[in-house]
Design a protein around this nucleic acid. Structure first.
Lengths: 348, 348
DNA sequence: CTGAAAGCGCTTACAG
DNA sequence: CTGAAAGCGCTTACAG
């Protein structure tokens, strides 16, 4: 049978409690005692019983990752980052897909969420976009007194900067979009086009803001016809590119799409129309998804450190009490230039 | 405070045990008693304590999904399918990423796996490729007496067909590749090229076998120079396409790549060489990943019902005892024809 | 620095 | 059809 804490205690000639102290790295154990217990635990191949610990301590040693379909790559990266931290702390990660209803009715969602969280009372929740902005979800968690961390929230950014919010990990989408736009302008582009993301996602607005701020800074003018609404899908990128490239007006020399899928749509339309990318048209995206490297020319984009965000999120949840860890964490992005902007033209 | 089973029992005027019976849907409870208990449980907003159940029953009510980077989309689909079944059974899904070392040394992997599984003794494990074929992993699970289901194993397929194996969910890669090849041939193609997948993945061989079987059936000849080794990456698809398309020999009229990423590489090379897809070259992939719809022309491919495989895997694990459920489950694939093969040319 | 006792909230194994 | 008792393997709250 599997060894229990009692087996270890007996063999070590100490009480159960002392073994518990050693294993939980509590202070106040004689060095020699600690060493002996540790060795015997190893000899017996002892590992504490998960359920028993949970029951006695009323902790679950579980963190939940809540998501509502923000794309498989994104979630997997967040997961990886979070899992690595969980491991260090003896925690595990469970998955909680959540469907936020498109239209008003929040009732069923709230009930469902509560039921699930009561069934499996996790010690903390990682919220990914768009859930990080869902007041409904935040309210439920607050009511159930479950700790949470918001990853990439896009609303209330001002409050975040003022640290009036809870645990948060975010990337400065606005600044990143600003930087990318500035890079395009500095390469000589004056005729810019922009494709906005899904109207329900806060990031859409932040990225647009960054774009416009750079435009303004350099005194350029972008007519409203050059700013097209998309919804983060490839298909919407196609539609937007058609509007931008095949009209009777002069076409832009560079298009900044709010994500990679839409940018891929632009490249695809350009190819069909015989517009050479990047010679006649520069294109860049956002998110630096794997897709950027699965097209020709490869796509310039903004790289979010998603793994790191997941890592930091779990860390914030599991390192409570560490005053050295600010509750709001900004992570760094990177501009990645590839063939599609022609700055550093690379072979595929 | 949160209600316990005792609160419900007292209020209902029955014993704890009876409440337990009702909640676990055990037989032998008077209908009226059952109804009363159920109602009171609801009034008290009672949900059983996860840890206490686990401790008392020595079950964990947890399933693990083990994976070694088979692609984010794949894992997310499997996850979704598995989670939906877990929910129905009051189970939860935890994630266990596993790194199988490239070269020989299995020691650390075995130790790590054992340590993790002893820490969190899940009630069952879902194994995804390439882990479904890892004898090391299978051995550890067997030794720890942990139930597992293999998803998409590619070795020992014969044994699988003979039902000499454990729980298994699989898709007939060989037959699917055969069908796709046959479809190309029936469209009139005689000069076929094939790009093989990663040599470490069993699916590479099965897909090649299917391709060759169809070639043989129709009495065609494919010189070895038309069968190129890839490794499932876009980059390897590029290299393979260069070998296939820019040599001095006549080029194939259709290329079947063993996965979508490589097929995307082929289309990309064709575009660069000015070879029109599908007019001059048909291309098809395998897996029907989102990438197929993020390129022009869109890619024909073989659609694996991945969600369904995850669903079935969890079902096999959680429905033990149900004799009506065969322990080996084959799921259906579908050939999806899009622009890249020109059979059903569609606008993007 | 260490330990004895109680208890977390369920299920199991019986008994009736 | 129902229940009383024991126990799962830890941690908490004390006491010393």
């Amino acid at each position: 049978m599997k060894a229990t804490i009692n087996d270890v205690a007996k063999r070590a000639g100490v009480s159960m409690k002392t073994v518990s102290r050693v294993l939980n790295k509590e202070p106040n154990v004689a060095v020699t005692t600690r060493a002996r217990v540790l060795q015997i635990a190893q000899e017996l191949n002892y590992t504490p019983n998960f359920a028993a610990r949970g029951l006695a301590s009323s902790k679950s040693y579980l963190l939940a990752l809540m998501y509502d379909d923000p794309g498989p790559t994104y979630i997997m990266e967040i997961q990886s980052g979070a899992i690595d931290v969980c491991r260090e702390h003896g925690y595990h990660l469970v998955l909680e897909p959540v469907k936020v209803p498109k239209s008003g009715l929040a009732g069923p969602l709230i009930e469902d969420l509560e039921a699930r969280l009561k069934r499996l009372p996790v010690d903390g929740v990682i919220l990914t976009p768009p859930l990080s902005d869902s007041q409904i979800v935040l309210d439920v968690l607050t009511r159930l007194k479950i700790k949470y961390v918001r990853v990439g929230p896009s609303k209330n950014l001002q409050a975040i900067r003022d640290k009036e919010t809870g645990l948060t990990v975010f990337m400065d989408d606005r600044q990143a979009a600003f930087d990318m736009t500035e890079a395009l302008i500095k390469t000589g582009h004056k005729e810019l086009g922009f494709i906005q993301g899904h109207p329900d996602h806060g990031s859409s607005y932040l990225r647009l803001e960054g774009f416009q701020a750079a435009i303004n800074k350099y005194g350029l003018i972008v007519p409203t016809s050059r700013i097209v609404q998309g919804d983060y899908t490839f298909r919407s990128g196609i539609a937007a590119a058609n509007a931008l490239l095949s009209g009777s007006n002069t076409r832009p020399s560079a298009i900044f799409a709010s994500n990679d899928d839409m940018a891929a749509g632009v490249v695809s339309v350009a190819n069909r129309l015989g517009i050479n990318v990047p010679a006649e048209l520069s294109v860049c995206g956002f998110d630096d998804t794997p897709l950027t490297r699965k097209m020709s020319p490869q796509l310039s984009s903004v790289c979010q450190p998603i793994y790191e965000m997941g890592h930091m999120a779990a860390k914030l949840l599991l390192s409570r009490g560490d005053e050295n860890l600010p509750s709001v964490q900004a992570v760094d992005y990177k501009l990645i230039f590839r063939g599609s902007t022609g700055r550093y033209l690379k072979d595929v």
